[in-house]
Write a protein that binds this DNA or RNA. Structure first.
Length: 211
DNA sequence: GCGCCGATTGGCT
DNA sequence: GCCAATCGGCGCC
């Protein structure tokens, strides 16, 4: 029986590639969570790639492995979830192959389903701030350490095929919130999306300097 | 609208 | 003791 393209879960092979490639291609895909017994879903509009043991910003830099980041060294297609600044959960999808410590951080979503649940979980914030950051989207989707090390396919939080993106609809910019190798252009976002963690700068969104 | 700062946990020096 | 892949509140243009 033929499955609808929209409803198909991404195959593990999708993640068996460099994090940079996966990060770009995750844009437009839909994350569906049933964590906590409630449905919440969003379209991915912003990601960040962490390349592996030779990326100074990766938690697995120089193969540093500990109790917190063990899932990062696991097989492609599993979740790596960690606590940031002692307060916020951040969700990654492991890429390429086990042992490389390569992953993609989900940074922002456009809410598409379960808005009432997201609003309740997030408190009173405007809708464009429900999932506009890695910690915020985890709170909105009910993601916690429970998801760490769990397979994406068939698990409580899955990524589905979205509509194909038009060529040139995304852009690569420097990574956010880190001090090492932050300038590497490994943050990907849908150009012009109002759902990202940062407002668009430059181009038509900013007045040109006086001549 | 922008920038600074504190909250709070865990792993490392 | 220090720092971190963050967030939200507050003060000041």
């Amino acid at each position: 029986m033929k499955q609808s393209r929209r409803a198909a879960t991404l195959p593990v092979a999708f993640f068996r590639r460099p994090a940079e490639t996966v990060a770009a291609e995750l844009l437009g895909k839909v994350v569906v969570s049933t964590a906590g017994g409630e449905l919440a879903a969003g379209r991915i509009v912003e990601t960040e790639a962490y390349l592996g043991y030779d990326d100074p910003a990766s938690h697995g830099y120089l193969h540093r492995r500990n109790a917190r980041n063990a899932a990062l060294f696991g097989p492609p297609g599993i979740w790596y979830v960690y606590l940031s600044y002692g307060m916020h959960w951040c969700s990654n999808l492991v890429c390429q192959r086990a042992g490389l410590a390569s992953a993609v951080l989900l940074r922002a979503l456009e809410p598409v389903d379960g808005l009432a649940t997201m609003r309740r979980r997030r408190g009173s914030v405007p809708d464009h701030e429900l999932c506009s950051g890695p910690g915020k989207l985890c709170q909105a989707l009910g993601i916690t350490r429970d998801l760490d090390g769990v397979a994406m396919a068939g698990g409580p939080v899955m990524v589905l095929q979205g509509e194909p993106l038009a060529p040139g609809s995304f852009s690569a910019t420097p990574r956010i919130g880190i001090t090492k190798a932050a300038d590497w252009p490994l943050r990907f976002h849908l150009v012009g999306s109002p759902w990202t963690s940062r407002k668009e700068k430059g181009g038509r969104f900013r007045r040109s300097p006086a001549p």
